[in-house]
């Protein structure tokens, strides 16, 4: 591991300035679970690592006035997954965060870091996308907010500009919703997702089926994606036939690749299977 310096700024302005100053050779981190591996493997060679854990608000995990959940950038996967408020109000998110790697890793890995790595397999992202989460960014021009779906640009690529860092995530509350996160790994639990599916449904008397849906798919495209056609079909019909059609639509939305973990064909079919299973479980809970 090549040497680097360590700085723990106290203000957002200071943090942003540090990131600018080192011209891309400074790396922000919170949990360090990804950054140290990348440095160890020689993928990145930072001159300085910037610890965000003293910045204001980064440890927030609370429900704000409008009912949204606010997750500071340094909140860990375990803090989210084991939080009773999250478990009752945002169960899909709790499942996603709780499925990452091991307990000890989740004690350090953060949701913010998971998003900033922009892996298509990030297990927290599909749930957040289903809830319509936004990310809060601070940079040289001050704060800005982006929908999470606009944050991901490609594998390992985000909308963060030079000098910008993610400070928090807000997650809207979806009244009456139930959700499930399903993933497939090589080992039974704790593996990187070969693919994953987040399904969120809630009662909605304005649509023919009586329920509205959001479905997000991980590790089957360059970024986490929605399956809009599947969502639309479910709002029309949640009978077994409708469910099968929606699951197939989700599989059709997937654009996976072959890699050493799985083939595209397997991933696509597993999107179909896990989407159907997820929707079935949600339907049981929301009484569809």
């Amino acid at each position: 591991m090549q040497p680097f310096d360590y700085i723990k700024p106290q203000t957002l302005e200071e943090a942003s300035a540090l990131l600018l100053q080192h011209n891309g050779q400074a790396r922000p981190f919170a949990g360090c679970t990804d950054l140290l591996i990348r440095i160890e493997r020689g993928f990145v060679h930072p001159q300085v690592v910037v610890d965000v854990k003293d910045l204001p608000g980064v440890h927030d995990l609370l429900v704000v006035r409008n009912g949204d959940l606010r997750i500071g950038a340094a909140v860990t996967m375990n803090q989210v997954a084991l939080n009773p408020t999250v478990q009752s109000g945002w169960p899909l998110l709790a499942e996603g965060c709780g499925s990452v790697a091991s307990y000890q890793l989740r004690n350090r890995a953060t949701v913010g870091g998971n998003l900033c790595n922009a892996s298509p397999a990030a297990d927290s992202a599909p749930a957040l996308i289903c809830y319509g989460a936004s990310v809060h960014i601070f940079g040289p021009d001050g704060p800005r907010t982006l929908p999470l779906e606009a944050f991901f640009l490609g594998p390992g690529r985000t909308a963060l500009q030079a000098g910008e860092l993610l400070t928090a995530i807000t997650v809207p509350f979806v009244r009456g919703s139930a959700g499930h996160f399903l993933k497939l790994g090589r080992t039974t639990i704790g593996d990187i997702s070969l693919m994953n599916v987040a399904v969120l449904g809630w009662p909605d008397s304005d649509v023919p089926s009586g329920s509205s849906w959001r479905i997000a798919l991980g590790s089957v495209a360059p970024t986490v994606i929605r399956a809009p056609e599947a969502e639309r079909l479910l709002s029309q019909d949640t009978s077994p036939a409708g469910l099968e059609a929606a699951s197939q639509a989700a599989a059709a939305a997937a654009r996976p690749i072959d890699d050493i973990r799985a083939t595209a064909a397997y991933r696509s079919d597993m999107v179909r299977v896990l989407t159907r299973r997820g929707v079935e479980r949600v339907l049981e809970e929301i009484g569809g």
Binding site: T187, T188, I260
Partner: peptide, 27 residues
Amino acid sequence: LLESIILRNGQPMNPSFTDYRIATAVD
């Protein structure tokens, strides 16, 4: 069930526990 060093033209593709999985207590 799990193990294989994936070699493509002699290059090992998975030389880490990330992609060379071994059985855990759950498996």
